[in-house]
Design a protein around this nucleic acid. Structure first.
Lengths: 340, 340
DNA sequence: TTGTGTCGTGCAACCGATTTCCTTCAACCA
DNA sequence: TGGTTGAAGGAAATCGGTTGCACGACACAA
């Protein structure tokens, strides 16, 4: 796999200096003064030997690991794949490793995380799986381990990395209203989960601003089943609805299912917009109009945020401001009433 | 996060023994002889202090890291989520960490892996992203880093961990034939990718055994678009087909799309079975009959296989034998001809 | 000439485990 | 009684970096 690991000792010998100098030169220690010629001898030796510091040795001495944990609620949810990808990419650039953790039974997450911290496997944590009653939150509040919450904010934590979800909802409502819809419903995520709540608020606010009824909202889990049930519920109670805005792609799949079961054609009888632009959206029947969000940027920003904290910056919350984009496909059209 | 890291020194002091004894007792060194009373003092001290060995220190000394790399082709593909989950779970049991790596530009994977190995971040590698021309294969053949290939086998490598894909195809064909279908097509994966080829072979063999035409096969990428194109192609060229077997769920979504475009109703005009049982399959229209495979077991077996290698076992290939299960849903029914 | 700094460099301790090599003591054998 | 053996345990080297401190040489001011 390589020309046999070179150690710092090897580099030092090759450059004819001591380990200390080699180390300081390679780390760019600012207080160091060396002759330029010496410096370049070290640098050249290092590249010639393909030197890479051994993370265990460095970590042992520096009492840090160069790795972050990234906790996602469910590996199978494609939204997280995007966030994770963004995080991985940025981590590679910043020369740290990311340990991905799935957080399916929140109870086991506390032991897992504290074990990883105690073993010295991670320096900090990015949590994408927050929920109000999550046992991890209490332990993190101690401040013993640096962390940020990504996507799912924890109010009051002061370390949230989020996107402008409310704006995304507004864009969805605008798109539908622009087509002439006056009766729009929202299949919302669980109110307990922060982005769900923010999207719902964004929906209600913009609806109100446009003089539409902001109350046609049904809450459900971010799953196909949840979307199905919520949509059926909404459409039964409010047959006048001509459009639905789903809070996630899984829910949107359920919404399409509901339409099919209730014998409503999309978009003829019902327009559907969804959060989460993904390849799947393009190949559902009909292809779904969706809102594209900067998920990779979000993941990258989370990595930056924890690393900055570890380097001593004061923790702070961050909002990725890139505006949502509406990807228009066949699932949205003017309402029948206005068309006929 | 914890009552302040305890070191081996702390345990030793608490148990009133030397570090050496503490280390040996905790590691269960077989050649050690201690009085039972001493041993239990050490053990109790360790649990009382919540001692966890520092992986960097241990790794430095033992020249190994207690971590494995797991390379998947695409984080957004839910199939891999299952495999990864299985691997994570087993890794936790065996007390190692798993570093997940996405392998989207194979060219960058060689530098990434050799860097991780050189830095001492991983001891071994599980590769789920093999392709015949993958640059990583050449470098792995050197034998400098322990590895296995999972799901996508590399012929001749001798370190493949796979499932009985061919049997799965046979089960799909059996299910369709059992319903009365005599004209079955197969939307296959790329022949270059091993499981695709094995599934196609399995399909052809069983078709032949049943006296059906084994040649109704179209190859495509494991994507929605691929499935769409392949299905359109097959159905145009062979209008007599009454059933299609898709090699992956993404492709199956494309197949449904194709049916819709060609104005074929599923299952009335066309039955569809797919590989890869997932929640999504249940909520597509119509819900898809699918083949469920032991993906988590596959991931776990891969972890075991690399760890065994690292412990000195001779490398070998493994096949998970658990038989495929057909989950019957509404996308399959007797062919129209036999019904009418 | 003698301090006093500064520059350039190196020695050695240290991080926390593992492991090699001893030491001590008692039992046992011839 | 001397020597061998085995049980029980400990001292110290080691892994590969990082970092506090010391050291020699030289410049410069007094």
């Amino acid at each position: 796999m390589s020309p046999a690991r070179a150690t710092l000792q090897d580099v030092a010998r090759e450059a004819d200096v001591s380990k200390s100098i080699a180390s300081r030169v390679l780390n760019g220690t600012p207080t160091l003064s060396v002759r330029p010629e010496t410096r370049s001898r070290v640098l050249h030796a290092a590249t010639r030997l393909g030197y890479r510091p051994h993370v265990a040795a460095r970590g042992l001495r520096r009492a840090q690991t160069g790795a972050l944990g990234l906790m996602v609620p469910d590996l199978a949810m494609p939204v997280y794949a995007r966030i994770v990808r963004g995080a991985f990419t940025r981590a590679l650039e910043r020369d740290v490793a990311v340990l991905l953790l799935e957080d399916r039974q929140p109870d086991s997450s506390v032991p897992t995380v504290s074990r990883l911290v105690q073993e010295g496997r991670i320096d900090g944590l990015i949590v994408a799986s927050a929920r109000p009653d999550h046992p991890l939150l209490g332990r993190l509040r101690d401040g013993l381990v640096s962390h940020v919450f990504v996507n799912r904010a924890v109010p009051g934590s002061g370390v949230n990395v989020t996107m402008s979800d409310a704006e995304a909802s507004a864009a969805a409502v605008d798109h539908l209203a622009g087509l002439g819809h006056r009766h729009i419903g929202h299949v919302a995520g669980p109110a307990a989960v922060d982005p769900g709540r923010r999207r719902a608020t964004g929906f209600a606010n913009r609806a109100r601003e446009l003089g539409l009824d902001p109350s046609r909202v049904a809450e459900s889990e971010f799953t196909e089943r949840g979307g199905l049930d919520a949509a059926v519920d909404l459409l039964r109670r409010h047959p006048e609805l001509t459009a639905l805005y789903a809070s996630s792609l899984s829910q949107a799949v359920g919404v399409l299912d509901a339409a099919w079961r209730m014998d409503l054609r999309v978009p003829h009888d019902l327009s559907v917009v969804t959060y989460d632009e993904m390849p799947l959206a393009e190949h559902l029947r009909p292809p779904l109009t969706s809102i594209s969000m900067p998920l990779a940027e979000l993941g990258a920003a989370a990595v930056d945020a924890v690393l900055d904290q570890l380097e001593g910056a004061t923790p702070r919350s961050i909002v990725i401001e890139r505006p949502p984009q509406v990807v228009v496909r066949e699932s949205t059209a003017p309402p029948r009433s206005s068309a006929s």
